[in-house]
């Protein structure tokens, strides 16, 4: 990696001041940033180490019932927080289905939000990539595209967002708190990721110097604890990114879906909320036909960006499965193989 300066500010204000300098990058767990620096996809001049900043490591329930998760909470600590996992079981399961235990121990929730796409062509520094260099072109198009986007892509970029965690968060209407040189702001997690347009590649909407300080789940996010699942289809039983994934969470009373949330991962440059699918089931008594209609609706706008039409069919089936499993009720404990399609098999042992 290139030579860089290293700073470890002791307050958020100092961090943001340092982070606003040109060429600065924030370092927390480092599991994604250092990897990108090693391959040369990121070449910061200054690393602003925020890993010890005070006040960003708490999981707090606020007076209005919402939950605020400090950006420096480690992925594993959040997933293992008993209160959190009970209230938001699909979020915990999504977290535990991602990466490896070692990476989850190091990676922070803020870093999880800020992680870059795993597009092979983003990583291959010889390839043209609009995300790395706007206007350069996209060598993924026409290349090895089996894992690329089927929703919300353009000729600018067909990459997907790799996070599991964010899929579950998007379903729960999470928002992201940022602190920048011009003050604090909050943005919905879904909109935090801009989709590619005809002219721009999209990516996380972070302004110069802005630091993710927290994630917030609104009070109503806890209504789904009883019927929540995250399922992740992958080509290795563990330690693999999703081909497609789906979170489904329902609030059910009297046999009627009072509210339902559905989001997909591995299909687009952002965790993809499937609102049409939600509408197909909301305020209804679920039937197999309705679930199928919801799954169809979730992918109604999908189109292959390459050799990946199969992902559309898989995503439909996965949404279907996630809804079914959510309606069946949250498992008593997180399965031994979190998020796995083999979770049931594992539970049976």
């Amino acid at each position: 990696m290139n030579l860089f300066d290293y700073k470890r500010p002791s307050s958020i204000a100092d961090a943001v001041a340092a982070g606003a300098e040109p060429g600065a990058a924030y370092l927390a767990g480092g599991t994604n940033l250092l990897d990108l620096m090693k391959v040369g996809a990121r070449k910061p001049d200054v690393l602003v180490d925020i890993s010890r900043l005070p006040g960003l490591g708490e999981i707090e329930t606020l007076q209005d019932g919402s939950v605020r998760i400090g950006a420096l909470v480690r992925n594993s600590d959040l997933a293992r927080d008993a209160g959190f996992a009970k209230a938001y079981p699909a979020v915990a399961e999504a977290l535990l289905s991602g990466a490896s235990a070692q990476l989850r121990n190091a990676a922070t929730v803020g870093g999880n939000l800020m992680q870059q796409t795993r597009c092979l062509y983003f990583y291959d520094q010889q390839s043209r990539c609009n995300r790395r260099q706007p206007g350069a072109g996209c060598d993924a198009i026409g290349g090895e595209t089996g894992k690329h986007a089927v929703l919300g892509w353009t000729k600018q970029c067909i990459a997907t967002h790799p996070s599991d965690f964010c899929v579950a968060l998007a379903a729960l209407d999470a928002s992201v708190e940022l602190q920048g040189p011009d003050g604090a702001r909050s943005v919905s997690l879904e909109e935090f990721y801009t989709l590619p347009t005809e002219d721009t590649p999209g990516g996380a909407d972070v302004r110069p110097g802005e630091l993710v300080t927290a994630l917030t789940l609104p009070a109503d996010a806890a209504h789904f604890a009883g019927h929540a699942r995250y399922i992740k289809l992958r080509d290795r039983t563990s330690y693999a990114f999703a081909i497609v994934s789906a979170a489904a969470m329902a609030d059910i009373s009297d046999g009627v879906v009072q509210d339902i949330r559905i989001a997909m991962g591995g299909v687009a440059a952002r965790p993809w909320r499937a609102r049409a699918a939600e509408a197909a089931l909301k305020s209804k008594a679920p039937t197999p036909e309705l679930i199928s209609a919801a799954a169809e609706a979730a992918l109604a706008d999908a189109s292959p960006s390459g050799d990946n039409a199969y992902k559309i069919e898989l995503a439909k089936r996965l949404v279907h499965r996630a809804i079914e499993q959510a309606l069946a009720g949250t498992p008593q404990t997180i399965p031994a193989l979190p998020g796995s399609v083999f979770a049931a098999q594992a539970a049976g042992r």
């Binding site: 480092g30 599991t31 250092l34 180490d49 070692q102 990476l103 121990n105």
Partner: peptide
């Protein structure tokens, strides 16, 4: 337990 290859020593 962490991966020491993705941990900046200074940090």
């Amino acid at each position: 337990r962490i991966n020491s290859c993705l941990a900046l020593a200074m940090s």
